[in-house]
Write a protein that binds this DNA or RNA. Structure first.
Lengths: 361, 361
DNA sequence: ACGAGCTAGTTAAGACGCTGTACTAACAAA
DNA sequence: TTTGTTAGTACAGCGTCTTAACTAGCTCGT
C-alpha cells in the first residue's frame, strides 16, 4: 500500500460522507473523518476542480464564529449506465444519476442471441445508453445471471451460453469506459444496501422466473469459495418435491418462483390462497432459519411480486423464522419487501460503478 | 487514513508473508508485496531491530547473482497468552508461540465463580500464565462463550452472569498488556483458519457440551447484526423434538451435542449405532444445506469427539449436503474434522492477538 | 584466470501526503 | 468597539514511498 492509496481512501471517506449524510462543511467533514481541516480543504479543492462536489453557500442556523460553507456532492453532474441481464428475453438498461435514479430507460429484446452474439448485442445496447446520457458517464455496471468472479469474468451462465467469459474486460475495451459486472442477485443486494437502506448483514431474495439470492455480511458482499454465493434457489426444501429446471427435485425455486406461486393459488378463494402462500412461507422460513442463525442477519428482503409475497407468505415465513431461531437472533430480525422493486438490479449495477470508481457504497 | 497506517499495512504484509510462506529474501518480499526493495529493506531493518525477524544466512540453491539473505520471522521470540473459557467448570489457558504451539498449559477450576468474581479469577489466572511465559508476551487472547462484540465487550454470557461487561478493556487495564476477547466458537474458526489451513469461506461447528459455530466468509470473521453470529446450535432442526436447555424444542444442540450423541448410541451394536449417527448426520446436512448454498462455503469443519463425529455422521451429512445443494456448490465442498482438536479455542485466541498486534492471520 | 552479466541489497534525492502552527475571515455577545 | 469563537488557508516539517545510481557477490564463458 502506497501513500497515494491512503489519499484515495481519504477521498472516498469524504465522498462517502457527502453521499450518505448530505451537504457538510469542511470543518464537519474534518470532525467526521478525523482528518485535519487542512487535509479536508485540500481534498475538497481537488473534488471541486473535478466537478464532483460544489459549494452550496452558508450553513443555515446562526451560531458563534465564522459561518460554515456547505459542500455537497453533485450527484447529477455525472451519470452511470446500468444494464440488467437477468431476464432471458429482454435486456433492460438505464442511464442513472449517482443517487440511483433512472434518467433514461431502454430495453432491447434479446431475440435468442447467446454467446458472442449476445456480447455484441450487449455492446451495442450499452453504446446507445452511453449516447443517451446527458452528463459524462463515469462507468458501466452490468448485473448478469450466472457465476461471476471478482474481476467481472462470467465463469458460467448456461442460459447465455457464456463460459469463462471476461465480460468486464471485453466491454471495458470496447466502450472505453470502466465496466463492472456482477451476478444479478448480488447486484440486487448491493442496490438495496446502498439505496434501499438495508442493514449491514442481510439477504435479498429475488423472486421472479427463478429464485436468486444476494448476501451482505457485516457490510460487504459475499463472494463465496467459487464466486457462487447466493445459490439459495437450488437448495432442496421439499423432499420428493417437484422436478426443477436444474434436474433435481424440491428446490426452493420449485415452490417460491413467481410462476410456481401463481400456479399454487390459481383458482383458489382468497382464504385458501393465503393458506397456500403461508405454506410456502413456512417452507421458506425453515430454509432461512439456519442462514439467519449462522450469520445473525439483521434483515431478509424479498424482491418480487408484492401481491404474492407481501402477505400471508411473508408473515408465515417471519413467524417460522422466529420460532426456529434463538430469541436473541430473532429479536432484531426484520423480514420485509425490498424497496427498489424492478430497478433493484439496475441500482445494484450502478452501485458497482459507484463503489469501484468513487469508493462510495 | 494516514501515511503511517499505510506503513503499518505494509509492515503487516511482510510479516504475513513470512508467517505463511516461511523465510524469504528481501528481494522476494519486494516481488511478493509489489513494494520496492528499498522499502522492504527499510521495513525489515525495523523488524530486525524489534527482534521480530532475523537473518538466516544465504538462501540455499545456487543461482547467478549475489546470493539472497533469507529473513525469517522469529516465531519463538515472543509469546502469546491464551485463555479458553468455553468450559463451565474449568478455565484452560496456555502460553503459546506465534505459531500456535502451546509451550505451557495451565487450567483452573472455576469453582462456581460467576460475574465479577469470575473476572477476578480470570485476572489471576492470566497473571500466572504471563508469569509462566519464557519470552516477552505480546498480548492476551480470550475465547469466551456468549455474545462478544468487536471491542471485546461481553454483551451477554448467561452462564457466567456477565452482561455488557467490557472484559477486554478491564483486562487490558489490569494486566497492562493488549487483551482481545471473542466468542469461543468464533475463535475456533479463526484458529482453524490460520493454523489449521482451512478455506477462505468455511464454517466450524464446535461440538461438546453444546454446539457452537464460527463462520469465515471470504477470509474474514462474520460478526453479524448483533455480534451473535454462529448461533447454529439453537436453530430448530427437529419438529417437536427434545426439550433444549434454551427452553425451546428440537434445537440442533439436542441431537448433535456430545452428550446427546452418546445417549443416542448407548447400548447399540456398531451397525445400529452407525445408523443412529447417520440419522443425526442427515439432520445436520439438511440444516447446513441452506448455509452452504447461500454462502458457497468451501469447507465445513467438525470439532469434537472424533469417535462420534468422524464416521457415519460425517459421511451422511456430506451426502445430504451434496444431495440438497447445486452440483456447482457441492462440487468444491469438503466436510472434514478440524485439525486442532482441544486446542482450537486457545489457538483462535492466539490468532486474535496475532491479528490485532501484528496484522497476521 | 578474469571479465561480462546478473541479482541482492544500500544510498541518495525527490515526490507526495498529512500534520502542527500560525495566520486571516466572519460572525455573536458584551 | 472589543472579545471570543469558529471556518478556512498558508507554510514548514516529517514520514513514507519511489526512482536512479551505486556496491557486493555470485556464475558462466572464454
Amino acid at each position: 500500500m502506497l501513500p497515494e492509496h491512503a489519499r484515495a481512501h481519504n477521498r472516498s471517506l469524504v465522498l462517502q460522507h457527502l453521499f450518505h449524510e448530505g451537504p457538510t462543511s469542511r470543518a464537519d467533514l474534518a470532525r467526521a473523518t478525523s482528518l485535519t481541516r487542512v487535509t479536508i480543504s485540500d481534498l475538497v479543492n481537488v473534488l471541486l476542480a473535478e466537478g464532483l462536489v460544489e459549494e452550496l453557500g452558508v450553513q443555515p442556523g446562526r451560531r458563534v464564529g465564522k459561518p460554515a460553507i456547505l459542500v455537497g456532492m453533485r450527484t447529477d453532474a455525472y451519470q452511470i449506465v446500468a444494464v440488467d441481464l437477468s431476464d432471458d428475453a429482454v435486456m433492460r438498461g438505464a442511464v442513472m444519476t449517482l443517487t440511483g435514479e433512472a434518467v433514461v430507460r431502454r430495453s432491447l429484446p434479446v431475440d435468442g442471441h447467446v454467446g458472442d452474439a449476445l456480447v455484441d448485442l450487449l455492446t451495442r445496447f450499452a453504446r446507445t445508453l452511453i449516447a443517451a446520457a446527458t452528463r459524462p458517464v463515469i462507468g458501466v455496471g452490468v448485473g448478469s445471471p450466472g457465476v461471476v468472479d471478482d474481476s467481472g469474468r462470467v465463469v458460467e451462465a448456461p442460459n447465455r451460453q457464456w463460459t469463462d467469459l471476461p465480460l468486464a474486460a471485453i466491454l471495458t475495451d470496447r466502450l472505453a469506459l470502466p465496466v463492472h459486472v456482477a451476478n444479478d442477485a448480488n447486484s440486487a443486494a448491493l442496490g438495496e444496501y446502498t439505496y434501499g437502506g438495508a442493514a449491514d448483514s442481510m439477504l435479498v431474495l429475488t423472486i421472479g422466473q427463478g429464485v436468486g439470492a444476494g448476501v451482505m455480511v457485516d457490510g460487504s458482499r459475499v463472494h463465496g469459495a467459487a464466486d457462487a454465493a447466493g445459490e439459495l434457489g437450488h437448495v432442496t426444501v421439499v423432499d420428493d418435491g417437484e422436478l426443477c429446471a436444474c434436474g433435481r427435485r424440491g428446490c426452493l425455486e420449485t415452490v417460491l418462483a413467481a410462476p410456481a406461486l401463481r400456479r399454487a393459488v390459481a383458482g383458489l378463494d382468497p382464504a385458501a390462497a393465503d393458506e397456500a402462500l403461508a405454506g410456502v412461507g413456512r417452507t421458506l422460513g425453515v430454509a432461512l432459519a439456519p442462514v439467519v442463525g449462522a450469520l445473525n442477519l439483521g434483515e431478509v428482503l424479498l424482491s418480487g411480486p408484492a401481491d404474492l409475497l407481501d402477505g400471508a407468505l411473508r408473515t408465515a415465513a417471519l413467524q417460522t423464522l422466529t420460532d426456529r431461531t434463538m430469541p436473541a437472533t430473532a429479536a432484531g430480525l426484520r423480514l420485509r419487501m425490498a424497496t427498489l422493486d424492478e430497478d433493484v438490479v439496475l441500482a445494484g449495477a450502478a452501485v458497482l460503478v459507484l463503489a469501484a470508481q468513487l469508493g462510495v457504497s
